[in-house]
Simulated scan of single mutants.
Amino acid sequence: MELRRHPFVRELLSLHLPPNDYVVAGSGPLLAHGLRQDVSDLDIVARGDAWKIAVSMAEATQPPSGRGLMVVLFSGDIEIFDQWLPGTRDADDLIDSADFIQQVPFCPLAEVLAWKTRSNRDKDQQDIKLIKEYMGIV
């Protein structure tokens, strides 16, 4: 799949965020690896100049997790966070460990698997199964 054709990825790239200052988290990495064809939005963890760009476009508010701040853009298609979920590595570690797929930084699938397993929400069960199958984990 050509990621740049996906409407959310096009919106993300239109922001011109510095690629070393953000990472696509949430279910976005499953889209990048072809494990899902559709996601409800793109969750972005940002720092430095990428975060400055985000807060210049919309007001930062408290996210549902209660951790850090978030900026919602494109009617919710893009959600940019200054921190990720409770119990995960800090933003710098997540961003520095990004896998670049078609020049877009994504969280490694092992990281996605860890937080989806920890959260263990009903909506994560299929993603956990897909990641495990992809990674050869039974």
Rank of each mutant, 00 (worst) to 15 (best):
R4A: 11
P7R: 11
L13S: 03
S14H: 09
L17W: 04
N20L: 13
D21K: 12
V23E: 01
V23R: 05
S27A: 09
L30T: 02
A32V: 05
H33L: 08
G34F: 04
L35P: 05
D38K: 11
L42S: 01
I44L: 10
V45P: 12
G48A: 14
A50H: 10
A50Q: 04
M57C: 15
M57G: 05
E59W: 09
A60C: 10
T61A: 13
P63Y: 00
M70H: 13
V72S: 15
L73D: 01
L73R: 03
L73W: 07
G76P: 10
G76R: 03
I80W: 06
Q83C: 12
W84F: 15
W84C: 07
G87Q: 05
R89M: 15
D90Q: 00
D93R: 11
D93E: 13
L94G: 01
I95T: 01
I95S: 01
I101C: 11
Q103V: 11
Q103A: 15
F106L: 02
F106G: 00
F106N: 00
P108W: 02
P108R: 14
A110M: 13
E111M: 13
W115F: 13
T117D: 00
S119P: 13
S119Q: 13
R121T: 10
R121L: 04
K123P: 10
K123V: 14
D124H: 02
Q126T: 08
I128W: 03
I131Y: 07
K132P: 11
Y134P: 09
Y134G: 00
M135P: 09
